[in-house]
Design a protein around this nucleic acid. Sequence first.
DNA 1: AGTTTGCATGAAAACGTTTACGTTGCCGCC
DNA 2: GGCGGCAACGTAAACGTTTTCATGCAAACT
Lengths: 335, 335
Amino acid sequence: MAAATIKDVAREAKVSVASVSRAMNGGSGVTAETSLRIHQAAERLQYIPHAAARMLITRRTRTIGALLPDLYGEFFSELIRGIDLAARARGLHLLVSSSHDGVEEAAAAVRSMQGRVDGLLILSERVDAAFLRANLPRDLPVVLLNSPVKDSSHAVLNVDNHAGAFAMVKHLIQSGHKRVAFISGPASNFDSRQRLEGYRAAMAQYAPDMPLTVLGGDFIEESGYQAGLQLAAMKPRPAAVFAANDMMAVGCLAAFKETGLRVPQDIAVAGFDDIPIARYVNPPLTTVRVRIADLGRSALDQLADLLESPEHSSASAQTLGCEIVVRDSCGASVT
Amino acid sequence: MAAATIKDVAREAKVSVASVSRAMNGGSGVTAETSLRIHQAAERLQYIPHAAARMLITRRTRTIGALLPDLYGEFFSELIRGIDLAARARGLHLLVSSSHDGVEEAAAAVRSMQGRVDGLLILSERVDAAFLRANLPRDLPVVLLNSPVKDSSHAVLNVDNHAGAFAMVKHLIQSGHKRVAFISGPASNFDSRQRLEGYRAAMAQYAPDMPLTVLGGDFIEESGYQAGLQLAAMKPRPAAVFAANDMMAVGCLAAFKETGLRVPQDIAVAGFDDIPIARYVNPPLTTVRVRIADLGRSALDQLADLLESPEHSSASAQTLGCEIVVRDSCGASVT
DNA sequence: AGTTTGCATGAAAACGTTTACGTTGCCGCC
DNA sequence: GGCGGCAACGTAAACGTTTTCATGCAAACT
């Protein structure tokens, strides 16, 4: 019992395949009566249109691709969640591809998605304007997430990393922690660089006499933990540490716990992202809230808009604001 | 400049489309010399075979679908990570669909994937044997994750929840915490039920005189937090609490912190899953390790095997073992 | 009444591949 | 020299849709 095709339905409903096609989509150009007959026939035969055949003639896949880095940590789970939710709401399928180590692998991933997707959502350090020109057909709608690309031919959606980091460092300083250290993310990462800049700017403005202390990290707990160990041994010890993301802040908390440093009494800690777990760690983590799921949702919505009206490719470069959320780890709410 | 088709390549290389097709796949039935000429032509034209056309004639998509619940929390990010890694290694694409609230929505998701995937990876409470019979063509390879389905026509891959929970409760009791409470997951969830059974069995065997204390939860931090508040107020207070997953254990820790209960001195805490963050919370969480990424990888590998040799559908029902990992939160490693 | 308009319907082309089948040319064998 | 076999290659059908165009027919105009 092979799957029913449009011809089977046509025979069953005693009409031509053209009418079946019309009835199944929109239904305009066909009598309500025959449309009903066709739908009943389709129901009887459990007819499901063959996706590939439709793609072939339509040149549309109703699928969007998401090119992401290694899906490690809660940030990406939230991001995908937002993307998926929005895609579902619009009846779009979601093809994900992650963990492309090198730029060559990323290029291969993009190429292999060619023709399987109507548009691309890209969040990757490896992807710059040159990459896009080299590996993508010019007419494929693309939305870049957290990307430094300023190319006017692609939409970009960024988080306001600079403002978020600036506000957090300002808050830490004004809470009395003048000596603020920073745990950075990978130097190749755009968000990481912007957050670092925000830290620098705020220090320059509000604690110009203090030295900058920047420890290298890579956005993973372990690196935050290592940085924490270093910080604990420093003399003079910083009064606060601001990690470029929450996972590293959590690793840092673990290191302080282990070395007997009390948070926030001995040292204040803050992170970035506000991943769901941030409010449940001990002590609850002060952080910069990025509405991660919303970020994914917005990105997909923007891409979907691009699909529907390609002429409207005004190459919008949007920036999502973020706000600091103060919890116990920075001491401001501890008496 | 529309995308190059196989005809363009044929013209450029001065051969027929058939030869181009042969050269691009395998390359058998064509001289090494002409094959080279064809590949060069393809390179020049930046030819990429049209995926839909290929699917149409081949009846294969080289894509597998993943049907998942709401992608909330680190468990799913790890799971998808494992699946994606394995898919990439085999050159398969990954179509994800999550957050299907009701059974009807899940059915729609499955139907809409029809014809777009060669096989399905399913992790969902809503999906039972009847659902599969009703919504899937009998010949579509499927691997079920953490599913109670015993149907011999589908492969199943489970975690050994019972043994894991049993071992953990045994460990807690033998560490001196006889009065063990349990925070359950959703009653509809298979893992949750099995873990509860493991708890019951271990209590019956090692602490038969102790009453069972089961608090309702839903696998989310907040419910663990609420359960923690309840536990803190109980008299007599349990000596240990075993949460059906790590996220609830983390919520529970937060509640104890807030109510001034010290962990593990006043109460021991254990979780299940060993999500990456478990070792970084405060105190580090004793838990049952499930190699989540491996779980995803195995599931995909099994599915891929099914694709390659459908006759080999021996409907294997595999169970992945898990082990307890002892950290500070249960007190065993605190002097 | 004749002509036009509009609408439901059907026939057939087109999308870009793969593959069954046929043709050609070459080689080796009797 | 004829013949069979084999490998390389080309022709054309097939996959299941959508869509353009033509056709018929009824209603609405002149």
